[in-house]
């Protein structure tokens, strides 16, 4: 697989498999995902709810809880496989070199501790600072993420913060230790549109000023179009298409990506109907044998392909910077 990266790759995920062993069967939430993130790059990871985006990101930090388990693949961070590290070594990476922000900023902060003490905690764990020093650094960090009146805000409890403020606090906390990689899991979903724009600007600034690599996980293609350098589209536990942002929006290949882009309502564009993708996301316990998108794929029927329901397509390059998992673009497909 070839990808364009801004700098050298700092994170390389290959053939990652994370499964959940439930009473009803094995849920293959992530089933053979390959991803690469370059230094200073913003990668968008897009897909519908339940396609495995979040599980992929939680796997990177090795925070998959029972009954989930990473059953295969590797996650190389600066060439070192995170899956080989001890729990203690992994802890020293979490929040220090790789950190994460989440969808519900208010709920992601502990209601009984002040914003300041929660940020300060990062310094206390990773840099061995005392509470007082940690608090002083927390004030600096809050100023950096654009919170006015930081000395006062630091004493605020999460319920006293608005969603946007809380997300800034989360970002301050995530950036406190100066991580090389920030994983933002639906960072703007719970926020108002105007606040969304501010948070997106903030993340862009962080990349530009600090050179932090960012993975933005979202179901919102609009956000990806605005912020990401490169986009990976995920469907039913696997990557189905990957390209730089411009290419992906100008020339989507995979029928699923086309469907996603077609279903975005555009301001000022009057249409009777939005395109919809027929059918539903497959049950991850009982996946279709061939291509996972085949049961919902109209392009396949139009092209008269039959192998889609029998064989699993590989991720193959359309060109050097664009890969897709679809038989339509493979020679000799039947």
């Amino acid at each position: 697989m070839t990808t364009t990266t801004v700098g050298d790759p700092i994170l390389q995920i290959s053939s990652l498999e994370t499964h959940f062993f439930t009473r009803d069967g094995v849920v293959k939430a992530v089933d053979g995902v390959d991803l690469t993130v370059g230094k200073g790059e913003i990668l968008g990871l897009v897909g519908e709810s339940g396609c495995g985006k979040s599980v992929t990101s939680m796997s990177v930090l090795r925070l998959i809880q029972n009954p989930g388990e990473i059953v295969g693949g590797s996650i190389r961070f600066h060439g070192e496989d995170l899956l080989d590290l001890s729990e203690k070594e992994m802890r020293s990476i979490r929040g220090d070199r790789i950190s994460m922000i989440f969808q519900q900023p208010v709920g992601s902060l502990n209601p009984v501790f002040t914003a300041g003490s929660q940020i300060s905690e990062v310094y206390e764990i990773h840099e061995g600072l005392k509470k007082k020093e940690g608090n002083a650094r927390a004030v600096e960090m809050l100023q950096k993420v654009g919170i006015p009146d930081a000395e006062r805000r630091i004493k605020a409890y999460p319920h006293e913060l608005s969603g946007g403020m809380a997300q800034r606090v989360m970002i301050a906390m995530a950036l406190a230790a100066g991580p090389e990689l920030l994983i933002a899991d639906e960072p703007t979903t719970a926020l108002d549109v105007t606040i969304q724009a501010q948070i997106i600007d903030l993340m862009r600034e962080i990349r530009n000023d600090l050179g932090t690599s960012i993975i933005v996980i979202t179901h919102d293609l609009g956000i990806v179009a605005e912020i990401a350098d490169r986009v990976a589209v995920m469907y039913a536990g696997e990557i189905v298409e990957e390209a730089d942002t411009k290419t992906l929006f100008a020339d989507p290949k995979h029928p699923y990506t086309k469907g996603l882009i077609g279903s975005i309502p555009l301001a000022g564009d009057r249409r009777e109907w939005l395109d919809v993708i027929p059918g539903r996301v497959p049950n991850l316990i009982d996946l279709p044998g061939g291509c996972r998108f085949a049961p919902r794929c109209r392009a396949r029927e139009e092209a008269g392909l039959t192998m889609c329901t029998e064989q699993r397509p590989e991720l193959t390059g359309v060109n050097d910077e664009h890969t897709v998992r679809c038989f339509l673009y493979q020679e000799g497909a039947k």
Binding site: L61, L63, G95, S99, G107, S108, N110, P111, E121, M170
Partner: peptide, 25 residues
């Protein structure tokens, strides 16, 4: 809850996650 996940993502020991962040609540 989400904030317990945050505490883990920060790099806290499991003991602190449970006894400090979760137990107080």
């Amino acid at each position: 809850l989400d904030y317990v996940r945050t505490a883990r993502a920060k790099g806290l020991r499991e003991r602190s996650v449970v006894l400090k962040h979760a137990l107080r609540n």
